[in-house]
């Protein structure tokens, strides 16, 4: 487990996805170990999410708002179990299509590399989300507003999603670079221009950026588009998956259930929560 967390650290720092590693055609992480990390971080955040139900039940707001006090423990366990499940199921549902389209556009990323890349992305997402967990737990402990908690959690997950998106796009960008260096251009490379300022992790990539920017390698570039599109699909499937798996936070007005009946949808509910919150 310690080893897996070291791998997570290497991914967060961008060490695992260095150009030198990608050149060797590998991302030196173990997908299995990272799934363990994802599950653990998911459980942690799930507990933070479930804290709202527990406090509402025990403090009780005078009892009127918490008719289902005995269910709070169930809600806490349910949130901790369902949160990692949500991310892994979403990945499972969207992975086959990504693989097929990735192969279709002629990318040379092998299935194993695709899986490692995606599990790494998931790990980044959950690291961000879990790191915001203490703030969510604090609001869960102190606030009485259910719509506020819903929107806060949506915002936290969205933040995790965007940072994971940035990670994935950065890595895809490096993979394109690697592909470019492997296929030297027929024309002489243009004179090296001053490299754009990049992060420290990108430092070893900058010379290739400047010399080979003009080169086009259609396979990997198309693969990047496929990944970008796929992320959109991932977000939509994830949102609906979250809706199917709800409740995570636990409406204080409704009894605890492992899964609620299928009604409405995620986006409608977020708008309604916004309306309730702003309606005062």
């Amino acid at each position: 487990m310690t080893n897996s967390f070291k791998q997570l650290d290497a991914i967060l720092r961008g060490d695992a996805t260095r150009v030198s590693n990608l050149q060797r055609g590998e991302i030196p992480v173990s997908a299995r170990g990272l799934v363990g990390v994802v599950i653990l971080l998911g459980v942690l955040y799930g507990l933070c999410m479930g804290s709202f139900a527990v406090v509402r039940a025990t403090l009780g707001d005078g009892g009127a708002n918490a008719p289902h006090a005995s269910d709070a423990g169930g809600q806490l366990v349910a949130a901790a179990v369902k949160l990692p499940l949500l991310f892994l199921l979403t990945l499972g549902v969207t992975l086959p299509s990504l693989y097929v389209f990735n192969a279709l556009v002629g990318s040379r990323l092998r299935p194993r590399a695709v899986i490692r890349l995606l599990v790494s992305m998931l790990a980044v997402m959950l690291a961000v989300i879990a790191s915001l967990g203490p703030i969510v737990a604090f609001f869960g402990l102190s606030t009485t507003s259910y719509p506020f908690m819903k929107l806060l959690n949506v915002a936290v997950c969205a933040a995790g999603g965007f940072l994971a998106l940035a990670f994935l796009l950065r890595t895809m960008h490096r993979i394109v670079l690697v592909q470019d260096t492997e296929d030297p251009p027929a024309a002489p490379p243009p004179a090296p221009a001053p490299a754009p300022a990049t992060t420290g992790a990108d430092a070893d990539a900058t010379p290739t950026v400047s010399t080979l920017a003009a080169v086009r390698h259609p396979g990997e570039r198309r693969a990047r588009s496929v990944f970008t599109l796929w992320l959109l699909v991932f977000a939509l499937v994830g949102a609906q998956m979250a809706w199917v798996l709800r409740p995570f936070i636990g409406d204080p007005q409704r009894p605890f259930e492992w899964l609620r009946s299928r009604e409405s949808n995620f986006f409608l509910d977020v708008f309604q929560a916004l309306g309730q919150l702003l309606g005062g």
């Binding site: 650290d9 720092r13 961000v128 790191s131 915001l132 203490p134 703030i135 940035a166 990108d202």
Partner: peptide
């Protein structure tokens, strides 16, 4: 301060500014 610290740490790592 303490509540915000974990996410501050993760963000530093992600931007390559851990040091």
């Amino acid at each position: 301060f303490a509540l915000g610290l974990p996410s501050f740490f993760v963000l530093h790592s992600l931007l390559g500014l851990r040091d």
